[in-house]
Computed example of a mutant assay.
Amino acid sequence: MTKRSKRILAVASGGGHWVQLLRLRPAFEGFEVTYVSRDPSSSQDVPDARYFTIGDASRSQKLAFLVVILQAFWILLRTRPAIIITTGAAPGLVTLALGKTLFGAKTIWIDSIANVEKLSGSGGLAAKFADLRLTQWPDLADDSVEHWGAVL
């Protein structure tokens, strides 16, 4: 296993997305994990790991999206991950897309447990860039989205 093959970039917006990502930490054992989220204080949740802050954006905030794209690109340049895993939302999708297309990273999208009736908008867009898409609800699984259980 090369040094790069042991690098994971774990990305999540704040709140429930961040909580769900943190619950996956045991699965990252043995890897060099860098975390990315919106709140600088979230670095306290992962004191032994590298941590970057990223902005947030919505479809109506074009300038904010540009900032998130630039931040994600900079983080990817600094970390060079082999795997990117995200529980959403926009910052995770942007990082996933850039990491897949520009850096050849393997990518995993885990849709939020809050999306009970359908996948999130970002989860739908992630189909273009995710090597694996997971839902936390068995009823939402189909040929393109797998269900392995719930994070919470």
Rank of each mutant, 00 (worst) to 15 (best):
A57H: 13
L96R: 08
A126R: 12
T95I: 07
D143Y: 01
L93G: 08
R23W: 05
L119N: 00
L66Q: 08
A10P: 01
T2P: 09
V67T: 15
G55P: 11
T107H: 04
A126T: 12
T2R: 12
A130D: 12
L77H: 03
L96K: 06
V116K: 15
K106F: 10
G124S: 13
W18N: 14
G104I: 06
A64N: 13
K106Q: 11
W109K: 10
I84N: 02
A126P: 12
P47Y: 05
V46M: 02
A150E: 14
R78N: 02
A90G: 02
I54N: 04
L9P: 02
I113W: 03
A12E: 04
R78T: 05
R78H: 02
K3G: 10
P40W: 00
R7A: 07
V46R: 00
I75L: 04
L24I: 04
T135F: 03
L132M: 12
A27N: 09
V36S: 01
F73G: 00
F28K: 03
L22E: 03
S58E: 12
M1T: 14
A126I: 11
G149L: 05
V67Y: 08
A64C: 11
A141C: 09
T86I: 06
L132F: 10
F73D: 02
L21S: 06
Q136Y: 01
T95L: 08
L63R: 12
A90T: 14
L70W: 14
Q20K: 07
P138G: 05
A130T: 08
A90I: 11
I83W: 08
E146T: 10
L76T: 03
V145W: 02
G123R: 04
R78C: 08
R80H: 06
T53M: 05
E32W: 03
L102E: 04
H17E: 11
S41F: 07
S120H: 00
G121D: 04
A12H: 01
E29P: 03
Q44G: 04
T86L: 05
R38M: 15
G104F: 10
V11H: 08
D45R: 11
V19D: 14
I108R: 07
